[in-house]
Simulated scan of single mutants.
Amino acid sequence: MQVLVRDNNVDQALRALKRKLQREGVFREMRARKAYEKPSERRIRERAEAVRRQRKLARKKMQREGLLPTRGKTARSR
C-alpha cells in the first residue's frame, strides 16, 4: 500500500493511509487475530454478520421502493 505525501503534509498522508487500511479491513483483522477464536464462536459471529448484512440490504431496498422513510436530516427536521 502506498500513500503520497504532498507539500510535506504528513498528517494528511497519515489520514489517507488510515482510510485505506480501514477500507481494506486491516484493523478488523488485527483485532480478530489478537486472541484465539474458537471455531464455534467464529461460525456464530459469521452467521450474525450475514444476518446483519441481509437486513441492511433489505432495509435499503425497501427505502428505495418507498416502503420505508429514508433516514437523514430532512426526515428529522421540523
Results as ranks from 00 to 15, higher is better:
residue 1 M to P: 02
residue 1 M to V: 02
residue 3 V to L: 09
residue 4 L to N: 09
residue 5 V to Q: 09
residue 7 D to M: 13
residue 8 N to L: 02
residue 9 N to L: 03
residue 10 V to S: 13
residue 11 D to F: 14
residue 13 A to C: 00
residue 13 A to G: 00
residue 14 L to K: 13
residue 15 R to Y: 13
residue 20 K to T: 06
residue 20 K to N: 05
residue 25 G to L: 10
residue 25 G to W: 15
residue 27 F to C: 01
residue 29 E to L: 15
residue 32 A to Y: 03
residue 32 A to N: 08
residue 34 K to T: 12
residue 34 K to M: 04
residue 34 K to D: 10
residue 35 A to N: 07
residue 35 A to F: 03
residue 35 A to I: 11
residue 36 Y to W: 15
residue 38 K to F: 09
residue 38 K to Q: 14
residue 39 P to L: 01
residue 39 P to R: 02
residue 41 E to A: 13
residue 42 R to G: 06
residue 42 R to H: 15
residue 43 R to H: 12
residue 43 R to I: 07
residue 43 R to Y: 09
residue 45 R to Q: 03
residue 45 R to T: 00
residue 46 E to I: 05
residue 46 E to G: 05
residue 46 E to T: 08
residue 48 A to T: 08
residue 50 A to M: 10
residue 51 V to T: 07
residue 51 V to Q: 03
residue 51 V to Y: 01
residue 53 R to D: 07
residue 56 K to I: 04
residue 57 L to D: 02
residue 58 A to I: 14
residue 59 R to A: 08
residue 59 R to M: 10
residue 60 K to G: 12
residue 60 K to C: 12
residue 60 K to F: 12
residue 61 K to A: 03
residue 63 Q to P: 03
residue 68 L to Q: 03
residue 69 P to A: 00
residue 69 P to V: 01
residue 70 T to W: 00
residue 71 R to D: 01
residue 73 K to C: 00
residue 73 K to V: 05
residue 74 T to I: 01
residue 76 R to D: 04
residue 78 R to Q: 11
